[in-house]
């Protein structure tokens, strides 16, 4: 990703350069309004950048057509405000698999295995509308990883959840990333969550990457003073 800018009414994101490595778990932290969600949306190609270039495996991303769809299908984004379809839990998880034309048998195997992983086998035929917040979020993540994307984008996946569900979801994310070598880019408002699960931490403030580095370094001896203040919870904004 090179010199990518996003301008709405004003510039909300300017990234000089960001290089992401396959199979790594990234924790994106920063105050609200920093541009974290915008970054995920641009990577997922839901919004076009205003200028600059995004490269996937060294190739410039196609802006439209089948090329774009193919690329998008290598990724999944779980939104800050997740929306489950008004359908059964099972069909929600199967959605991305059906969109990709997986055969019935394969869909069944994967969905059932995921239901087992998120501990919701009994709730397979429940309507998604009737789930609790934690259950809904587990389904949203299962739905996003069902088709084993190369890149998993998570926008505050555990906001407003209880500790039990947070732990479960964090375990799921780590397991997915390790087993399937999925690159995870997780935005979180919770610096401790980043500390727990990220390999690399990216600190964004006012639309710019202030600092990026190995989690340990960011938390023990960051180069930047504002990074230090932020991870220590002392930043005033």
């Amino acid at each position: 990703m090179k010199a990518v800018r996003k301008i709405y009414d004003e510039e909300v994101l300017y990234i000089n350069e960001l290089i992401l490595t396959k199979g790594c778990i990234y924790g994106v932290i920063g105050p609200s309004g920093a541009g974290k969600s915008t970054l995920l949306r641009i990577i997922n190609m839901l919004t076009d950048q205003s200028s600059g270039e995004i490269l996937y495996n060294g190739e410039p991303a196609p802006k439209n057509g089948l090329g774009k769809l193919t690329l998008q299908r290598n990724m999944a984004l779980v939104f800050q405000k997740t929306l489950l379809f008004k359908d059964t839990v099972w069909n929600n998880i199967a959605y991305g698999l059906k969109a990709r034309g997986f055969n019935k048998k394969e869909i069944e195997i994967r969905v059932n295995s995921l239901l087992d992983q998120i501990g919701m086998t009994e709730l397979a035929s429940r309507r998604a509308e009737t789930l609790s917040g934690g259950e809904a979020q587990r389904v949203a993540i299962a739905r996003a990883v069902a088709f084993e994307p190369e890149i998993l984008l998570l926008d505050e996946p555990t906001a407003n959840l209880d500790p039990g569900n947070i732990e479960l979801i964090e375990e799921m994310i780590i397991k997915m990333a390790r087993d399937k070598a999925i690159t995870v880019i997780m935005v979180t408002h919770n610096v401790f969550q980043a500390k727990r699960i990220a390999d690399q931490v990216i600190f964004i403030n006012q639309g710019k990457i202030v600092e990026m580095g190995p989690t340990e370094k960011i938390f023990s001896k960051p180069d930047n003073e504002s990074t230090r203040l932020f991870v220590e919870g002392k930043m005033v904004y």
């Binding site: 839901l46 998008q72 939104f79 929306l83």
Partner: peptide, 18 residues
Amino acid sequence: KGGEIEETARSLGAGSAL
């Protein structure tokens, strides 16, 4: 809610028609 639904669908790999 259509915009949100459309984006969710796209983020899961749906093409325009789906």
